[in-house]
Design a protein around this nucleic acid. Structure first.
Lengths: 240, 240
DNA sequence: CTCGCGGCTTGATACAAGTCAAGTTGTTGA
DNA sequence: TCAACAACTTGACTTGTATCAAGCCGCGAG
């Protein structure tokens, strides 16, 4: 598999091999991380940027009552804290959801390269802005969509993002999120997530089976949930 | 009143007068905008960065059913879309909530200055990262806090941010948000916001009276809502 | 001065999602 | 091979928030 970060940046900008090489050179040797392990913990002063190469992770907070809220999902190509070290302290944690491969980039080295390569800098900006757009979309979902729309909208988001990085094969996405995790992301109980998934399955719209997401009727799902992928700001769309 | 953007950046970095002058020079002549008017509209291709100098605004989306979700409040010193023009199209709108004064900065001119002044660049990064932290905190609120905690948490956030830019006088904040607006931000109906505010008032915790917020027992309110201001990443705190 | 309108307030009722509980399935590891 | 455990499933009941409805207050326009 080619480098997931390059793959992702190519979604925004053309990436000449020479530039790709320079970026790749900054990446540390990949490290394997088991599932359910923190990559960064609230209160940490992070030292380097972490790049996801394989596997899934999430940003999350634990509340005083012990409940968890997930605020983002990270897929291959996503970065933990691009602007690391501007802030002194993490205000949330990041944990793997599956076994993962990650690499590090030292901030100073990255900054030097970005200064020298404006196109790359713009690509990183774009990545950051897309992250913000996604967060706003989550706020909209949690505020104004009911449980069925929330679940469907999230699945369409993940499906679109996975498609952009080549993770979708035969219209199926291996998506190892438990119903508990989906609930923690959407502010729902796992029991309720279960009922919603059943309804979506019974209506023939989408299905999660053995850790695999299949969207049978994406047009209907998009209509029902108010999903419009323009907030993901993909420049170079892949063929479906 | 001194320039609100400078005031805000000083919350992160010392700002020598000479640097302050350079930044001020980039600001266009301030423009007066009436209340309830879009500064940017979904679908626009924004041309320049907008800086709030006076007044309040909000980012929002309108859903197909006609409901509105607010995803951020902008106060003096806040910027609309720092990285403008990296993305081609706005995926949300920004509207004033009160009469406001705004100025513009041309992107290229700002970029040149940021390239020349690393300290300023870091200050802008910090601003951006704080915005993201606030969004994550909103996601946490909407997912895992009940209506009373949501309202209280938002008021503490606004109070803290207003304090940082010198908007709080005599422990009172002129905060012209209607109950409808608060509801649109928190995903609640105005009717319910009203009931929550009554409870908070009756319990002597906080009160909104004639567009003015007074927090009588901030320790209790912070405890009840799980508010911890570290996510606002203020470096140089003001005296209370 | 008063009319009209937007925002606030309060009550009665409805419903979406939460809670509690019990049982099933599937996987891991001894 | 079976024990242990985590995730999933389903049902019965509860509750927080929405909805609907009506009246009030205060301010700006004519």
């Amino acid at each position: 598999m080619p480098n997931a970060l390059l793959e992702k940046l190519r979604g925004f900008t053309a990436m000449p091999p020479e530039l790709a090489g320079k970026l790749t050179a900054l990446l540390s040797k990949p490290r394997d991380i088991p599932a359910r392990q923190d990559l960064m913990t609230e209160g940490d002063a992070p030292a380097a940027m972490v790049v996801m190469l394989e596997g899934w992770a999430c940003r999350y907070n634990i509340l005083p009552e012990g409940t968890r809220q997930i605020s983002a999902f990270l897929m291959p190509g996503d970065c933990c804290d691009l602007h690391v070290s501007v802030l002194t302290e993490m205000d949330h944690s990041i944990a793997t959801l599956t076994p993962a491969k990650v690499a590090h980039i030292q901030r100073d080295e990255l900054n030097d390269l970005l200064d020298a390569e404006p196109a790359l800098m713009r690509a990183f900006w774009w990545m950051q802005l897309v992250n913000e757009s996604v967060m706003r979309a989550w706020i909209v979902s949690m505020g104004r969509r009911d449980s069925l729309q929330r679940v469907g909208h999230l699945m369409l988001e993940l499906y679109a993002r996975a498609t952009a990085i080549g993770l979708v094969r035969d219209d199926r996405l291996v998506m190892p999120l438990t119903q508990i995790v989906i609930g923690d992301a959407l502010g729902l109980t796992p029991v309720h997530v279960n009922r919603v998934l059943r309804r979506l399955r019974e209506e023939g719209v989408m299905e999660i089976q053995g850790g695999t997401l299949t969207i049978a009727d994406s047009a209907k799902l998009a209509r029902v949930t108010g999903f419009d992928d323009s907030y993901l700001h993909r420049r170079l769309k892949r063929a479906a």
